[in-house]
Design a protein around this nucleic acid. Structure first.
Lengths: 116, 116
DNA sequence: CCAATATATTACTATGTAGTCATATATGAG
DNA sequence: CTCATATATGACTACATAGTAATATATTGG
């Protein structure tokens, strides 16, 4: 469990990790890597993002430890470093779905009460 | 489990949730609320952030569903809406610790090899 | 060494947003 | 109603960063 009183340093690190996931382009890259290791070029083609853009986002994901890097010839292969990332996404997606259900139920409830 | 192929809309929502956590000030607020419901003024004092700043960050946390809001007189009391947030922090903190341990071990290993 | 290719980096622009100050909007007290 | 207080909002500034185009840096093949 995260400490009750969190040091500013840890909080800073924590926020940087979350910020790295707070960008659709980077999530796209992580999702693309879900199927396994891919080269930069493959990621460019797969995501439709620009090459320089992909390269920079990969640097950030690497700096946060989300992906690993393997050089082979002129190619650079990136891969998910730890499946934990997807645990985070799953928890978050779960909350989103839950809220959408709640919102839907509330709307139905309101519509019903208007009806009666 | 998060879907293999994520819709752009879900990815957008997901990134917005993560982005909301990608800010030390907002994490500070969430951590402060760990002890229970607090008013805006109490949060201002507890965090040392400006009143307007706190109010705006709380709006964002509320929009993402992280906190609930209860009005009582001229006071507004905010509270953690779902403990899930802390699950996310815990997973993330776990990864940070793990990496720090790994980094430390690597450094010790290198020092040792230099020594021998 | 030279050319071709894959990736990384730099310089730049455009956009987003955190923080702050001033002010607006409740709400309760007298 | 008027005043005081708590919170929210609008305008603004300063800074961070996503995206892109051009270029630099390997690395392989000839």
């Amino acid at each position: 469990m995260a400490p009750k009183a969190m040091s500013p340093a840890l909080m800073q690190e924590l926020s940087e990790r979350f910020k790295a996931l707070g960008e659709p382009a980077r999530l796209q890259l992580l999702m693309a890597l879900r199927g396994g290791e891919m080269s930069v070029g493959e990621l460019v083609e797969s995501t439709g993002l620009g090459q320089a853009n992909v390269s920079k986002h990969l640097q950030q994901l690497h700096a946060c430890g989300y992906v690993s890097r393997r050089k082979e010839g002129t190619f650079a292969y990136y891969a998910i470093a730890h499946a934990d990332v997807f645990v985070l996404c799953d928890v978050m997606c779960g909350r989103i779905e839950q809220e959408q259900r709640a919102r839907g139920a509330a709307l139905r409830g309101r519509a019903h009460s208007v009806h009666t």
